[in-house]
Amino acid sequence: MAASERTVLQFASSSSSTANITAKVHPLVIFNICDCYVRRPDQAERVIGTLLGSVLPDGTVDIRNSYVVPHNEFSDQVALDIEYHHTMLKSHLKVNPQEVIVGWFSTGLGVTGGSALIHEFYSREVSNPVHLTVDTGFQNGEGTIKAYVSVNLSLADRPLAAQFQEIPLDLRMIEAERVGFDILKTTSVDKLPSDLEGMEVLMERLVTLINDVYKYVDDVVEGRVAPDNNIGRFISEAVDSLPKLSPPAFDKLINDNLQDQLLMLYLSSITRTQLSLAEKLNTAAQML
């Protein structure tokens, strides 16, 4: 860090506030960026676009939506279709006024020369925009996704340059987990899993987990594996989290619940029978 009391070369005061900015990405954004990249024009090297979302009270930038903006890039110039950007923004605001511009994205690894220009443009649209880069080329063998904010470097009062500073990015995507990675990570799924199939997969997973725990405990008891206190604590916590109920009380609880469910099942079956009966009667009535 160049900022210290003696040097006149320092980051602008905003650096202190940017220090604790984090960003969170909705999986939709990644999907959209990938889709745009696949559909980019022939000669384009990369795609850029606008990120929409909101800033949460704790300073986290929640990136929830995005759209691509056509642009042309020459050696030292970037031409952005600003009109397109504004029409699209207007359309998006019509649907969801809560989602405002929070920054912009670009494909490629890291920040390139033209980025500063585009960043400057977005700085005029919103203060302190976030720059998200998605490495669609897998240049270093992994799909790197990074977020940056710009920090001004100034010599005394004179602005000297802007520096892109990486900020932590939360990529744990609850929304994607809800849909299921099984569906999202393969190129083709023939059929959506039904309720019960999902349940089956889940049970299998749970059984493997429990078996893993058993195996670990056995190994520790028999001295094959060095015990780890942390894991031990987790296991005991998990076991403790089962509510302590006397067996009769628990049985009653389960049985009551089962009875309720059975009643519902009965009700729905009887309704269905009624329906088919009604249909038969209706057709019979038409014979009159």
């Binding site: 669609t136 990675f181 190129t187 959506l192």
Partner: peptide
């Protein structure tokens, strides 16, 4: 319903899981 994803998306999701 059949679900399809581009290879690029699939790569990213495998990476991010």
């Amino acid at each position: 319903i059949k679900v399809s994803n581009s290879a690029l998306v699939s790569a990213f999701m495998t990476e991010l899981e």
